[in-house]
Amino acid sequence: MNPVVQVKDLETTFFLKSGPFRAVNKISYEINQGETLGIVGESGCGKSVTSFSLMRLIEKPGKVTGGEFTLNGKSILGLDERQMEDVRGGKMAMIFQEPMTALNPVLTIGYQMDEQIKKHLKLSPKDSRDRAIEMLQLVGIPSAAERYESYPHQLSGGMRQRAMIAMALSCNPEFLIADEPTTALDVTIQAQILELFQSIQEKMKMSVQFITHDLGVISEVSDRTLVMYGGQMCETGNTQDILNSPRHPYTAALIQSRPKMGQRVNRLKTIEGVVPAPHEFPKGCPFANRCGRVQPECWTTKPRLTTVTGYDKRAVACFNPL
């Protein structure tokens, strides 16, 4: 069976006044039906830009400058704006980070759901209302019919994120992009939302791209993981393999920065240095200036993603892997 999502050598460039900046640099991955790919990396590593590139929602001065993206064999990057409108929210949906601001404050939850349902499923007003309420129930919103009439500010953060999920799932997407859907929520709500996520995915059998900077969340939800830094892929493979035996020094450093259960330390470990400004990344490996295992060639040549033997679908881009 072919993978639902195929991304190959995706490149997104921002044409800034100071010169072009490649925010996403040759990213490739595949997601099978019912599978979840987690994308991890710190702020500014290009994980959100990757998602927006796939949705074709990159605004000027940014532009997708290369690569391919096919959804069930259909090429998406070549579609015109009208065809793209049919894909967005239909076959492919997105959940955003901030449920506080991602919903329009002056329109009811119901109205905002109906808009999408009418557009893609071509239902009558009454049927789309039924569909919206059904979806609200599915995501566990109590008294869904009442909430349908509510405005976003009348719901709590967790409920709003549930509504957001209901909205994204309302037109049976084949591919769902979740851009840090739990980051803005507190931990108990986070756990509920993650659980909801998994149960729905099991029911609806869609492919999910789950973006987060939280390794705990990744280990919870994703089958496979892609680690990004500076717009490039560091490492990819099964989530458990990556968490148990990281190969890329960046992945290893990320894992070491986490607090460990039952261990009290005065200071958490951090990765030395800071992410460079857009135009100050090393010419070779973007992580070279912060890496403990840096080699002379890391500064001059970009490491290529190479398969790691002994694992299922595992690859790392490093000259001196662990």
């Binding site: 949705m55 929602l57 704006e81 793209m84 409108e85 049919d86 894909v87 967005r88 929210g89 239909g90 949906a93 997105m94 955003f96 901030e98 601001t101 991602a102 919903l103 329009n104 404050p105 905002q112 808009e115 999408q116 557009k119 893609h120 957001m164 909205m167």
Partner: peptide
């Protein structure tokens, strides 16, 4: 410039 404009676009609504 609001986030919900992006949400609306992501839903596939016409410009």
């Amino acid at each position: 410039r609001n986030d919900f404009i992006r949400t609306a676009r992501a839903k596939g609504l016409a410009r």
